[in-house]
Write a protein that binds this DNA or RNA. Structure first.
Length: 303
RNA sequence: GGUACCAUAGCUCAGCAGGUAGAGCAACGGACUGAAAAUCCGUGUGUCACUGGUUCGAUUCCAGUUGGUACCA
């Protein structure tokens, strides 16, 4: 008796500039399948150069999804990604046994693999109001409100992180329930199996690649890309490594040379945070990006 | 060649009237549930250039050596 073949999601994750894109394309070509990008900034079609979005040539080699699918003016979040990616996977699995998820946004990868709790999207007016009070009365205001509305979360949250508390407050105010009571910390069941592959390079090697990629972005016209986005500078999508620094330059706050240096530094820090995130997920099996054959063998043995 | 000054963390530099040292930046570690390339927390990582001398004790004082900078030749 034949058992139905279970579908497989291959997660290719790792720090920025490690070489995820080209490996994913190679794998997708060999497995004749699609790539779901999971990069919270490559969603935005206006952010191309500074986010190292795959080139037209690369995109042509394998079907990609979630690249340039949004405008910087669109609102988006990890929960939406979860439902959209799940819906897309359902379709793709009708014709493919394996699909590749490729990206460096840990929260979004988790949202797809484990699910994210059902919480309300932020109400912009409410968020604005809380934020104004925060700016007026400081983080103590946030802490006091949280202690009243959700003492449990208050006891364990990082109380100096305004974003965390603002989110907890807006959920508590919108639902009338403590934020902590809505978090299940339970993984949602999935109709497919998942293998997680982490890509790793020595720090020196990674930093060298970051440095070279930054030089490349500049040559490819990053400054012009940012200049064309000046009217969108207040949007969250522009709060991104590569864009913030060039904005500082265009504002005359720093030299162009300094902006490049800052991009390199901030990209290294971003890579470090990504590594911290992925390291704690013990499901990852780590490979050097050159170990394509080993990775392919692992995937095929899982099919 | 002479004179002066300098040599302390990856970098820029404090400091010690003698009791083995500390800031900023960088770096490193961590947190993370609708902002996540975001946001936030933590950590000094050192042959105090080298070799001697004085001293109970030298990174600190003295001499020499090496390297650097400036000026004079």
């Amino acid at each position: 008796m034949l058992t139905p073949r279970t579908k497989l999601l291959v997660v290719i994750a790792g720090p920025t500039a490690v070489g995820k894109t080209s490996l994913a394309i190679e794998l997708a070509t060999k497995l004749k399948t699609h790539i779901l990008s999971c990069d919270s900034r490559q969603f935005y079609r206006e952010l191309k150069i500074g986010t190292a979005t795959p080139s037209e040539m690369e995109l042509a080699k394998a079907p990609h999804h979630f690249i340039g699918n949004l405008s910087v003016t669109d609102y988006y979040n990890a929960a939406r990604y979860e439902s959209e990616a799940l819906a897309l996977l359902k379709r793709l699995y009708q014709e493919h046994d394996v699909v590749i998820l490729c990206g460096g946004s840990g929260l979004y990868i988790n949202a797809l693999c484990n699910g994210i709790d059902e919480l309300p999207d932020p109400d912009p007016d409410l968020r604005k109001e809380i934020k104004e009070n925060y700016l007026k009365f400081g983080v103590e205001y946030l802490q006091n409100e949280l202690q009243k509305l959700d003492p449990i979360y208050y006891s364990r949250v990082d109380r100096l992180n305004p974003n965390r508390i603002i989110r907890a407050l807006e959920v508590a105010m919108a639902t009338g329930k403590p934020y902590s009571s809505l978090l299940t910390h339970r993984a949602k069941p999935r109709q497919f199996r998942i293998i997680k592959i982490g890509l790793f390079r020595e720090r020196d090697e990674l930093f060298e690649r970051i440095s070279q990629r930054t030089t490349c972005m500049v040559t490819n016209g990053l400054v012009d890309e940012v200049r064309n986005l000046l009217s969108f500078r207040h949007l969250n999508a522009l709060n991104t490594v590569g864009y913030k620094e060039i904005l500082n330059y265009l504002d005359g706050k720093i030299s162009l040379e300094q902006a490049f240096t800052d991009i390199r530094t901030n990209t290294r820090r971003y890579a470090k945070r990504q590594l911290t995130w992925f390291r704690k997920d013990t499901d990852y099996q780590w490979f050097h990006p050159d170990q394509q054959d080993e990775i392919l063998a692992l995937i095929e043995s899982s099919l």
